[in-house]
Nucleic acid binder design. Sequence first.
DNA 1: ATTGACCTTACCATGATGGGAAGGTCTATC
DNA 2: GATAGACCTTCCCATCATGGTAAGGTCAAT
Lengths: 136, 136
Amino acid sequence: MNIGQAADASGVSAKMIRYYEQIGLIRPPSRTGSNYRVYGSDEVHVLRFIRRSRTLGFSIEETSALLALWQDKTRASGEVRDIASEHISALETKIAELESMVGTLKHLVHCCQGDNRPDCPILDDLAGTHSKTKGH
Amino acid sequence: MNIGQAADASGVSAKMIRYYEQIGLIRPPSRTGSNYRVYGSDEVHVLRFIRRSRTLGFSIEETSALLALWQDKTRASGEVRDIASEHISALETKIAELESMVGTLKHLVHCCQGDNRPDCPILDDLAGTHSKTKGH
DNA sequence: ATTGACCTTACCATGATGGGAAGGTCTATC
DNA sequence: GATAGACCTTCCCATCATGGTAAGGTCAAT
């Protein structure tokens, strides 16, 4: 299997497959006589694992740890759960931050006439020219 | 005022002030005879505006647009509201994605024993070795 | 043999920020 | 004055994950 076919089969772009190899996330595959990378179903399986992990928002580093645990037959599932739990916490923090932003912005948009007058509470808030943003 | 003092007064690092100047977000300030940048309260005001905008998650590009509108006395507040509304939508999409990730991960963690057995539903899900992840 | 689709490596770009080096300047103290 | 230390200047590099592009080699079908 060529890299393009492995890319199609795994959903990871050829560009990324080479990158993952370069940073040591995956092993260098064997090559043909003309220096083409050759992949088998095992490699595709690994690539799918990586893709799913990335889709779930795990960083490359976390993905690398999960991959090692996956391939380690003697692993303890507690380690995996810890990684996932910490990732959940990080995601929830991020969500809370975004929700806070959205809350502020919605309030500002609600207060904004949206007409042609030069007054604009959104800009006023950004400029910090008034005392309070929140609290009706 | 030197760049360090402007940084302290605005909450934007000196490094970032120079960067904003370099990309054209802010105007180059005047210089002393010894080539030091000199800032006044107007510049600090602009920097605070930028900082607040970035804190609310607006990109540099969006911040640039908002800054132009802020400094345009004849602006229509509708434009500002449109930028903010679109940003809210983008943030909400992001939040929904993150919540979806968290939902999946929580389910997986819930199913994971966290003991020393090699079975781990989280890894199984990442590997895609079973039919369903969701749906109890 | 030619063509077109694929592969290879190598370099550059993103967005926003931080780090550091090498060298110049200002201020306070001796 | 001189010296020390805190500041300033520019320039380059790194991040993180991904995409693009260019120059050149290879394969399969016509």
